[in-house]
Design a protein around this nucleic acid. Structure first.
Lengths: 207, 207
DNA sequence: GTTTAAATTAAACGTTTGTTTAAATTTACT
DNA sequence: AGTAAATTTAAACAAACGTTTAATTTAAAC
């Protein structure tokens, strides 16, 4: 759609980091300009306003967030394996877009700026559909339980991960994790296992 | 500890609602004063500054958040029933303190204001301990599985609920829920059932 | 090389921000 | 009733905010 030049991308990159860590209202246009090493007028020049830049940033980041869920559903895997793949995909994507998820998380919950978000909502609905399809497949094969609320499984997956990231200071202290790397490792190992285990326990009949 | 008069409580109440819906940086002391029907100088007069008022608000709200987890653990219930009671308690408490959780959620994730949060961290650690105790009880009785990561179960409970509340616009559309009441009902019924079912599936041996 | 458009700059714009002041009013106490 | 302290007010404060301006530099086109 819209192509951005190097300077514009530099601005968006700096803004993304600052918005995520200081919030939209807590970030000044001057601090963004400083971080991106451009004049403060460039933001209005390129994007029109601070708010329009946020909108541009969200669209830019969410438009390429479409996951390869369709691909998974077509792969030659058991429903159980597909669920595993799906959870891996969720986790890696949220981890990759940590800043954007942080921003969206706040913007979705505030009524201050009513913006499009259509791009993001579309991705979510699309994910929900692909997920439902995989679960239904397992249910038809008699592998998955039928007395579950499919709509609430993605919230459990996402919610667990997001909660763990949001309350990082607490869990760092509680689990005795010191470095950024160790925390990422914990997510990639222990947390991923926990989520898979939980969803499997909910879905799969005992064997 | 600190006692607040009616006017101070009025300010804190107004601030809580505004901070939750507009964010700390997105809320001006003038809008708080207007909502609380007091002069703008009263905030500095009573609390010293806007930031100190936030701190006072957090301490005020989190100090009485101590749950009756200890009581549950002493009640004459099966471990399974205790887990149910616990989940009910979590959900009702988060629902009751929706605004404060929203504020804390943002403040914990931002590095802008490094404030105490000790009161809140204490509650969390305390909850984790009480929860661990109950799970251990069930494990010793041979009712609960032992190959679970107890530390990650509260994040699953909390995360699912918080995620569902944060992405409300999406789920309202997706589930065809129109009113505030219907959404609350969905949380109190379907979502609560889903969380209990999930945690039970993870913990309890098949029977 | 000249012309035209795009990019970049420093400065200034008018608001809004959180906080303080100093005067006025209310309350509490003897 | 009279005094001292606490409360409440409107006004003013400087600082920071997002945005615009007008001048300058750079790049592109002919």
């Amino acid at each position: 759609m819209t192509e951005y030049n190097d300077k514009q991308l530099e601005i968006l990159k700096a803004a993304e980091i600052l918005f995520a860590s200081e919030g939209f209202d807590g970030t000044s246009i001057r601090s963004i300009a400083k971080a991106a090493k451009v004049n403060i007028a460039m933001i209005s020049y390129y994007f029109g306003s601070k708010e329009k830049m946020l909108e541009a940033l969200i669209i830019y980041r969410t438009s390429d967030m479409k996951m390869q869920l369709d691909i998974i559903s077509k792969e030659n895997l058991t429903p159980s394996e597909k669920v595993d793949r799906l959870i891996d995909l969720y986790i890696s994507r949220i981890n990759k877009n940590k800043c954007m998820y942080q921003i969206l998380h706040f913007e979705l919950s505030t009524k201050k700026r009513i913006m499009d978000m259509k791009a993001f909502t579309d991705v979510k609905r699309q994910n929900m559909e692909a997920f439902t399809k995989i679960i239904n497949e397992g249910q038809e094969q008699g592998i998955f339980r039928k007395d579950v609320n499919i709509n609430l499984i993605p919230p459990t997956i996402m919610g667990t991960l997001v909660h763990f990231q949001m309350n990082r200071p607490f869990f760092e202290a509680h689990l005795g994790i010191a470095t950024d790397e160790a925390y990422e490792d914990y997510i990639k190992n222990e947390l991923t296992i926990h989520i898979k285990q939980t969803i499997k326990a909910l879905l799969v009949y005992e064997n």
